[in-house]
Design a protein around this nucleic acid. Structure first.
Lengths: 241, 241
DNA sequence: GCTCCAAATATTGCATACAGTATACGGACA
DNA sequence: TGTCCGTATACTGTATGCAATATTTGGAGC
């Protein structure tokens, strides 16, 4: 029977408000699989270079091979796995060179993003930024790496959103997630300076000073890049948690 | 690189030359389907907003639904179609706003790309650029729009390649293809100025003047953006080819 | 003992089949 | 006559089956 109160073609006017509320969608399975696999990759549960066998993953996740295949292909286009023809999927192994290139691109995109944000920011936007800034500083106190990394990502995403350029936001999202993967292991030592720079950035955006915001962000990104490089050079104190 | 310790019958030396020659790969069908569909979209054979039915496409291309599905999903991540859950694929309808955002991002990426190219260009790189420049000018004479657009894309791709940043190249490739889609209809009036600017760019790169190369490219990209905007404003001479 | 070859196994790629959901059509009721 | 509801149809999402190809293992020849 009709157990769901489906207001299918409603929009009769009286229900116009309902249009804003997203109806519960049947959540595509491939999306869930994508998220799950991505989590496993970022967790290092699936190690770089590892061969991913569709059937194994399917059984592990309790689904058929089909959604797994589709998820793997999207993971490829997003740079998380390499899909070699007739051979299967392998977790992408990031080279130092590639990481540097990614950080360089990120620097350029984020710099532009900061400029845009400074030009478009409304008072309520600034409010959000300050809130995220506080959340980050709190995470800094608790020294919870995972929370710190997330707070960082949130702030950058918010800045991108304020820029009102969706294409740019989407790209930054992609790049940042990959950067985050490389960067997580070294997030701790950098975090303190990082949030000072964030504070500067938020101020510049609040002032509507595009030039300065861009400059601050550029410095911020380049500093991250440098930190990454340094930590790679003296890699011996690699403590896994 | 095979990380497996068993170097089975690996490159005995006498066959080392064969390594350079790509063995005839069983050409993944989904790739062919992707290319075919993309061509149809760029051709406007599949109109923006059109509902793409998997079964129809499959029959038309003489394959099953499976490779079609996979191609459609990649087309989504690349921004060519919108995949609405339980509803199917629709050819993406580009809004003016989105086009402008895309051109803005392109401008930023290309500017950086030009700087990198100026820093890394070798004499042989410059040779290639000049060759492409000549090819473009020849296409300009023949007034073949399709060839012009391709020559343009080739030059930009070459500049990106010289920059030695693969991540950047890949991104520029994606963005440029979409820009090209929006831009093709108005390619003709702009082409003359465009190739003059290209010449300037090539010179700057040949001189290794990163600052100037970046500036020229920035101007070039912004000019394109402006032209796009103008042509949208006075849109009445829309001649279909 | 080492190399080369061949059968066996494993895994991908593609095709088909089935189930769930959204849209479209047609009839009943006010 | 207009609106609402129920059924029918179409399409997507997922699962399974089959063929082609790559990898591994075992054995024969030098």
């Amino acid at each position: 029977m009709t157990s769901s109160p489906s207001g299918r073609r409603a929009a009769r006017g009286s229900l116009s408000a309902a249009a804003s509320r997203r109806v519960e969608r049947p959540a595509p399975l491939r999306q869930a699989v994508y998220d799950a696999l991505l989590e496993l990759i970022i967790n290092r549960t699936l190690a770089p270079g590892q061969h991913l066998v569709e059937a194994e993953l399917a059984e592990y996740l309790g689904v058929s091979r089909q959604p797994v295949r589709e998820a793997l292909q999207r993971l490829q286009t997003d740079g998380w796995v390499d899909l070699r023809p007739a051979q299967g999927a392998f977790v992408h192994t990031p080279t130092e060179e590639e990481a540097d290139q990614l950080l360089a691109v990120r620097s350029v995109l984020e710099t532009y993003s900061a400029k845009l944000a400074a030009e478009h920011a409304t008072p309520s936007d600034v409010k959000i930024l300050k809130k995220l800034q506080r959340a980050g500083e709190e995470a800094l106190v608790t020294a919870n790496v995972e929370r710190l990394v997330k707070a960082n990502a949130d702030l950058h995403a918010a800045v991108a959103a304020i820029g009102r350029n969706k294409v740019l936001s989407e790209m930054i999202g992609l790049v940042d997630r990959r950067v985050r993967w490389y960067y997580t292991p070294i997030a701790r030592p950098r975090s303190h300076d990082s949030w000072n720079e964030h504070a500067e950035l938020v101020t510049a955006i609040a002032d509507g000073d595009a030039e300065r915001a861009g400059e601050v962000m550029h410095r911020h990104a380049e500093q991250t890049r440098q930190t990454y490089h340094d930590s790679r050079t003296s890699e011996n104190s690699t403590e896994s948690d």
